[in-house]
Design a protein around this nucleic acid. Structure first.
Length: 702
RNA sequence: GGUGGGGUAGCUCAGUUGGUUAGAGCAUCGGAUUCAUAACCCGAAGGUCGGCAGUUCAAAUCUGCUCCCCACUACCA
C-alpha cells in the first residue's frame, strides 16, 4: 500500500507579533496545517512545514511606543510567547522563523531588487502627510486628528476608535503627528507599485479556470469577487523606519510594505531550514499548500502568487485551504477586548491536555463557516468522545489484558477466528481509505470523525465477544479441559485483536493527537520504536506488537472535565467582559481640551436649534440618513451618519442642535447643508443635543 | 449599498450530476450489559431542509424575489 513519494511545502500563516496566540489561530490555521503536515510525513512524503512571526508593520511600532520600548523588543517578546505556545501544542514546524531575521531581510531585498531590475514596478509620486520636526512621513496610524464624524479629537488616520469610522488621513480635521504632536504638512514622496491589473488575465486563467474545482468554494468565490471587481496597482513600499529597507539608493526612510515582505518570510524560513531549499520553491513537482484564515485569502491567492509569477523562479500554491473564523461563546474573538482563550493560559490551566484542545478544535474547525467554541462543548466532546469512546476502549483493552493475559500481548489462534475479526480489519481498512480521501480534500473534521469511528469499532468488537464471560481471573470457564482451552484461545484472540487495534489507533490519531498516540505506544513499551511504527503504511497490520510483549499497567489516556472547571473558565470570561465594560464606563475616551481660541473665532460658529421635520434613509449607504431640518429661517437638508443608530421614523420631530455655517458637502450625490451636533452616551450611541425645554427653531446658541 | 460565504434535528455538522421514507455524532428517552472513567453496545423519538413564488412526473438540490448571520468593500463632516 505504498504511495509514490512526493514533496510538500506546507505553510501556516505568520502570526503577527503584537500579541499572544489564541484558539482562533490554532483552530483556523496552525492546527489544520499541523495535522496535514503530520499526515503527509507519515505517508513517507518529504515535507517542509514552515511558519514564523510577522514582525514588521505599523501596529508593532505603535505597541512599542505604548510600552515605551522598541519595535524589536515587542517582536522579541511575542515571538518567544507564540513560538513556545505553538511548540507546546505539538505544532510540528520544521522551521518557525521570524521576519526580522537576517536571512529574511536579505531574501526580501533580493526579491524586490529582482522585480525592480526587470522594470516590473510602477513608480509614483504622491503627497502624503509629513512630520517636519521628526523628518518623517507618517503612516495612517501615526496621524491623529479630530474625527469628522464624531468630533473625537483623538481619531487615528485610518480609524476613529470612538465611533468606529474608517477614515483616510486626509479626512481628519487638524491632522497632527502622534510623535511630535505638531501639525502635519503634505509633502511629495515616491513609491513603487505592483501593477496587479496587468496580471488580471493571467489570474483569471490560473484561478478562475484552473482551480474552479479543487479550491474551496469560499476561497474561489472570494478570489473571483476580487478579480471581477478589477485589480488596482498596489504600493509595495512605504515611508517608515521599521521594516526591510528598500534596497535602492534614493529610498532613504522607506521600507517594504509589510504585506510584501511577510509572505516572502515563507521563502526565508525555508532557506534557513535547508541549503537545498530550492527543491521546495523552484521544483514544479513540489506541492505548495498555504493554510490560513479567511482574512488572508486575497494576499495568498492573488497578491503573493502575482509576486511569485513576476519573479518567475518560484512555484505557485497548489491549494489555499482557508478556514473561516472561530467565535468564543457566541462572540467574536478579540485580542484587544481580551475575549479569547489564550494558548499559554490553557497550557497552565489544563496541563498535559494539549490533545484535548487539539481534538475539540479539529472536530469543530470552522471549515465551511464560522463556528463557535463553547466550554460546554469542550466538556461534552472530551467526556463523551475522548473519554467514553477512545480512552475507554484503550482502558478496557489494557485492563482485560492485565486480568486475563498477564499483561502480555496474547497469542493469536487463527483457526478460531471468525467473521468478526475479518470484518473488524476490513472496516478499519475502509476507515483508512475514507481518511485518506478526506485529508486530500482538506476535510479534516471528517477525517477525525473516522478516527473516532475506529475506536467505536473496537468497543463494539469487545462487547460482542464478551471475553470477560469466558474467564474469571486466571481461570477459564468451561466444564471440560477442551472447553476451557478453547475459551482461553478465544479470549487471547479477542485481546490480541484489541491490542493490535489499539496500536493501529495510535497511527490513525497521530496527526490529530500526537501526544496521545505516543502515550499509547509508551504503554506498549515501544517508545523507542515509536517513530518507526507511526507510519501510515503500517495501518491494518495485526502484528504491530510482538506476542509476549509486556504491556504497562493501565493509565488513563484522558480524564473527565468536571463542571467546576467549565464554570471557572466561564467565570474568567465574564470577568474579562465586565472589566472591559467597567473600563469603558470608568474612562470613556474623553478628548483633551482643545487649543484656545478667541471669542472672535467662537462667534464665527453659527449654532442653532432646529427640528427634524423629515427623514429618509440614503439609498446605497448603510450609515446615512437624509434629514430635513427646520432652523426657523428655512428648511435645511442635512446628511448625517447615524443610520446604524436611528431609524428615519424615530428621528422625525426631534429638536436638535445644528451647525449652520459649515461649508456644504456632497455625500452620495446629496448636498449636506450643515451638521447635526451629537454626543455619545456610555454605550457609544450618539445622542442629540437639545435644550431642557422646547425652544423655538432658529434660536442661536451662545 | 455592492461582492463572496453560510442558513438542514435541541447542539455541531454531512447531503455527490434534482430521484423511494432527508443522514451522522452529541444531548434526550427506552432496552441490554457489567471488562471499563455510571462508561460501552442495541434501539426509539426528534426536521414544512430560513421564507415566498416558479421550472419539473419529481426540488434541501435548479431559477427569481425576500429575511437573518459572517467577511471584504463603499457611504460617515
Amino acid at each position: 500500500m505504498s504511495v509514490e513519494k512526493q514533496r510538500y511545502l506546507i505553510t501556516a500563516a505568520l502570526p503577527y507579533a503584537n500579541g499572544p496566540i489564541h484558539i482562533g489561530h490554532l483552530a483556523g490555521c496552525h492546527l489544520p496545517a499541523d495535522i496535514y503536515a503530520r499526515f503527509r510525513r507519515m505517508q513517507g512524503h518529504e515535507v517542509a512545514f514552515i511558519c514564523g512571526t510577522d514582525e514588521h508593520g505599523v501596529p508593532i511600532t505603535i505597541a512599542a511606543r505604548k510600552e515605551h520600548t522598541t519595535p524589536q523588543a515587542v517582536a522579541d517578546k511575542y515571538h518567544e510567547i507564540i513560538d513556545k505556545a505553538l511548540y507546546q501544542f505539538g505544532i510540528s514546524f520544521d522551521n518557525f522563523s521570524r521576519t526580522t531575521s537576517e536571512v529574511h531581510k536579505q531574501t526580501a531585498s533580493e526579491f524586490f531588487t529582482n522585480l525592480y531590475d526587470k522594470g516590473l514596478f510602477i513608480e509614483k509620486e504622491e503627497e502624503q502627510f509629513y512630520d517636519a520636526e521628526q523628518n518623517m512621513f507618517l503612516a495612517d496610524r501615526y496621524i491623529m486628528g479630530t474625527c469628522p464624524k464624531c468630533g473625537n479629537e483623538r481619531a487615528y488616520g485610518d480609524q476613529c476608535e470612538k465611533c468606529g469610522s474608517t477614515l483616510n488621513p486626509r479626512d481628519l480635521i487638524n491632522p497632527r503627528s502622534t510623535i511630535s504632536d505638531k501639525p502635519l504638512v503634505l509633502k511629495k514622496t515616491k513609491h513603487w507599485y505592483i501593477p496587479l491589473n496587468e496580471y488580471e488575465p493571467w489570474l483569471k486563467e490560473w484561478i478562475l479556470e484552473g482551480h474552479k474545482k479543487d479550491w474551496k468554494t469560499n476561497v474561489y468565490g472570494q478570489c473571483k469577487s476580487w478579480i471581477d471587481a478589477g485589480l488596482q496597482p498596489r504600493a509595495v513600499t512605504r515611508d517608515l523606519n521599521w521594516g526591510v529597507p528598500v534596497p535602492l539608493p534614493d529610498a532613504e526612510g522607506k521600507v517594504l510594505y509589510v504585506w510584501f515582505d511577510a509572505p516572502i518570510g515563507y521563502i526565508s524560513a525555508t532557506k534557513e531550514l535547508t541549503p537545498d531549499w530550492k527543491k521546495f520553491w523552484c521544483d514544479e513537482k513540489t506541492h505548495l499548500v498555504h493554510f490560513l484564515g479567511k482574512d488572508n485569502i486575497v494576499f495568498h491567492c492573488i497578491i503573493f502568487p502575482t509576486m511569485l509569477k513576476m519573479h518567475g523562479d518560484f512555484i505557485l500554491p497548489e491549494n489555499v485551504p482557508a478556514n473561516e473564523f472561530l467565535n468564543l461563546e457566541g462572540d467574536k474573538i478579540s485580542t484587544s477586548r481580551n475575549w479569547a482563550v489564550w494558548l499559554h493560559e490553557y497550557l497552565l490551566e489544563f496541563p498535559e491536555q494539549q490533545d484535548v484542545l487539539r481534538y475539540v478544535l479539529a472536530a469543530n474547525a470552522p471549515e465551511t463557516k464560522d463556528n463557535d467554541f463553547t466550554w460546554k462543548d469542550f466538556q461534552d466532546r472530551t467526556n463523551s468522545e475522548l473519554v467514553a469512546i477512545l480512552g475507554n476502549f484503550f482502558n478496557r483493552t489494557i485492563v482485560l489484558t492485565q486480568k486475563f493475559c498477564g499483561s502480555k500481548v496474547p497469542k493469536r489462534h487463527p483457526e478460531l477466528e471468525t467473521e468478526k475479526e475479518k470484518n473488524l480489519w476490513l472496516e478499519l481498512d475502509q476507515i483508512r481509505v475514507k481518511i485518506e480521501e478526506a485529508m486530500s480534500q482538506y476535510r479534516l473534521r471528517e477525517a477525525l470523525s473516522e478516527v473516532m469511528n475506529a475506536a467505536r469499532l473496537g468497543n463494539k468488537y469487545l462487547t460482542e465477544l464478551e471475553p470477560w464471560k469466558k474467564a474469571k481471573g486466571d481461570v477459564y470457564v468451561g466444564e471440560t479441559d477442551f472447553e476451557q482451552l478453547q475459551n482461553k484461545y478465544l479470549v487471547e484472540n479477542c485481546l490480541h485483536n484489541c491490542v493490535q487495534l489499539s496500536a493501529n489507533l495510535a497511527i490513525l490519531m497521530y496527526p490529530f493527537m500526537p501526544f496521545t498516540a505516543k502515550k499509547i505506544l509508551l504503554h506498549f513499551n515501544i517508545d523507542k520504536r515509536a517513530n518507526e511504527l507511526l507510519k501510515w503504511e503500517h495501518l491494518g497490520r495485526t502484528d504491530l506488537l510482538k506476542i509476549g510483549y509486556t504491556i504497562h499497567n493501565p493509565v488513563l489516556l484522558f480524564r473527565k472535565i468536571e463542571d467546576e472547571e467549565i464554570a471557572k473558565q466561564l467565570e474568567k470570561l465574564q470577568v474579562s467582559k465586565a472589566a472591559m465594560q467597567a473600563a469603558q464606563v470608568a474612562t470613556p475616551s474623553i478628548a483633551p481640551i482643545k487649543a484656545e481660541i478667541s471669542f472672535d473665532q467662537f462667534s464665527q460658529l453659527d449654532r442653532r436649534i432646529g427640528t427634524i421635520t423629515a427623514a429618509q434613509k440614503v439609498a446605497k449607504a448603510d450609515k446615512l440618513l437624509q434629514l430635513t431640518v427646520d432652523i426657523g429661517l428655512e428648511q435645511r437638508t442635512i446628511v448625517s451618519g447615524i443610520a446604524l443608530h436611528y431609524t428615519a421614523e424615530e428621528v422625525i420631530g426631534k429638536q436638535v442642535t445644528v451647525l449652520c455655517n459649515l461649508a456644504p458637502r456632497k455625500m452620495k450625490g446629496i448636498e449636506s447643508q450643515g451638521m447635526i451636533l451629537m454626543a455619545d452616551d456610555a454605550n457609544g450611541k450618539p445622542q442629540f443635543i437639545s435644550a431642557n425645554k422646547l425652544v423655538s427653531n432658529g434660536q442661536a446658541i451662545s
